[in-house]
């Protein structure tokens, strides 16, 4: 990669390559801009960023619940040492019971535990993940606790939880 790109130039390359699949999402409260990505195009977008735009670091994958009855989102932060910038991608799911997106594990092995955590706490299903089981809650836990409409169980294995 000869030329050093700014974040806006990277975004321009993305929208040029994936028309209609990537859109400027907003500025974010802390000032970092983010881009909305179509769930079906995510794997291709990230592969393009990694292989052709030198975004070699997957900083984190996190899940967001915007409120009861509101969308869920899977958020990706990708880093590039070559360009000295990082880009934030959102994949939004308006259908909360069918939040599905391709797993990034084929591209970044670091995605493994991050996706398991988002699955565990928010119920986002990462298709193609090699071992999508709970990572923090107990294996037989019911529900996804960080969803805003989650109801705390009255008891768990005979131990009261509603004191």
């Amino acid at each position: 990669m000869a030329e050093k790109l700014t974040l806006d130039q990277v975004a321009a390359r993305l929208t040029e390559r994936f028309p209609g699949k990537v859109a400027r999402g907003g500025e974010g409260e802390a000032g970092d801009p983010w881009w909305k990505v179509d769930a079906g195009a995510l794997l291709d977008v990230v592969r393009f960023l990694r292989d052709e735009l030198d975004f070699h670091g997957l900083q984190c994958i996190s899940g967001v619940c915007y409120g009861a009855g509101k969308p869920l989102a899977s958020v990706y932060h990708l880093d590039s040492y070559a360009h000295g910038c990082s880009i934030c991608l959102h994949v939004e799911f308006t259908d909360r019971d069918n939040a599905r997106v391709a797993s990034l594990t084929p591209l970044f092995s670091a995605a493994d535990w991050h996706e398991r955590e988002a699955f565990d706490l928010l119920g986002i299903v990462y298709e193609g993940h090699p071992n999508l089981v709970r990572i923090l809650c107990a294996e037989d836990w019911v529900g996804h606790p960080l969803r805003k409409d989650y109801v705390i169980p009255k008891e768990y294995h005979g131990i009261r939880n509603d004191l």
């Binding site: 705390i152 169980p153 009261r160 939880n161 004191l163």
Partner: peptide
Amino acid sequence: KYGYHVVKGVDLV
């Protein structure tokens, strides 16, 4: 109050 994952006192166990 909001800790779904924490036992509310080990004397329950």
